[in-house]
Amino acid sequence: MDETFLTMLERNADHADAFEERFDGLVHEQHPEAVTVSCSDSRVLQDGIWGNDEPGWLFTCGNIGNRVVQRTDAGPRVSGDVLYPLAHTGTDVAVVVGHTGCGAVTATYDHLTDGLSEPPGIEHCIDLLAPGLASGVERLPDELTREAAVNHLVEYNVDRQVEFLLESEDVPDSVEVLGVVYDFQNAYDGKRGEVHVINVDGETDPTTLRETYPEIASRVERRWTY
């Protein structure tokens, strides 16, 4: 048996000891306060970045590229795992969480600029991101380093996912949609591991966001205004 899995089981035993009583009241229903859509990168701890160890508080979704879009017979629609809490559990906050150095954004950038060959499953994910990022690649400032270009597009991708949620008829109008970037590269001013707010209900101008939401003014920061 692989040692990694044995370690996982040991940690789960500790988890069960600590959490055995924390599921009271949650056995048959859930009413999370927010749904988060994060990248499934191992460096992005979906609950940990919010300091969450409370079952039932957050509905966490993860995929490469923090996508909210899926293909259906009726065309592109909000992914069911994101939509479920908004439609069925009374959740009225959706947070799209991008991150610096995103591999999915990098792969999509390479696909749009130089072409890229990946296994079909990964190509499918890139194909879902590419339509939104194509215009961003065209608008990138000249003479950016590769790393800077990717991190500019990380913000652009978050904006496109927020936009898709806001424009969807399936998402209730009462839902507040926010876009943030989790930084572990020191690409923003602040500590590694901080979340920076870049989008609130489609508003992306940092000055406007700080004036409108003074309680989060210190957490608003963008690398790219376009």
Score class of each variant (00 low, 15 high):
78 V>T: 09
29 E>F: 07
86 L>I: 14
179 G>A: 03
107 A>S: 11
154 V>N: 05
132 G>P: 12
78 V>G: 01
60 T>Q: 02
215 E>F: 11
226 Y>P: 15
58 L>Q: 01
93 V>I: 08
105 V>L: 09
3 E>I: 09
206 P>V: 12
165 L>R: 06
84 Y>W: 05
203 E>F: 02
12 N>S: 03
154 V>L: 00
127 D>C: 04
46 Q>A: 08
19 F>I: 00
202 G>F: 01
118 E>P: 00
86 L>P: 05
66 N>L: 00
119 P>M: 04
172 P>C: 08
221 E>Q: 15
134 A>C: 07
106 T>C: 06
68 V>W: 06
83 L>T: 06
191 K>M: 06
220 V>K: 02
7 T>G: 02
124 H>E: 15
150 V>A: 05
184 F>H: 08
144 L>S: 14
147 E>C: 00
126 I>T: 12
69 V>E: 07
134 A>P: 13
99 H>W: 06
31 H>Q: 12
84 Y>K: 14
160 R>L: 07
207 T>K: 13
139 R>I: 05
161 Q>E: 14
167 E>N: 07
64 I>H: 00
113 T>V: 12
175 V>K: 14
94 A>F: 04
217 A>N: 07
63 N>C: 09
133 L>A: 12
43 R>D: 10
225 T>F: 05
193 G>C: 07
65 G>K: 07
153 L>F: 04
122 I>F: 10
151 N>R: 04
50 W>I: 02
48 G>K: 02
67 R>C: 10
149 A>Y: 15
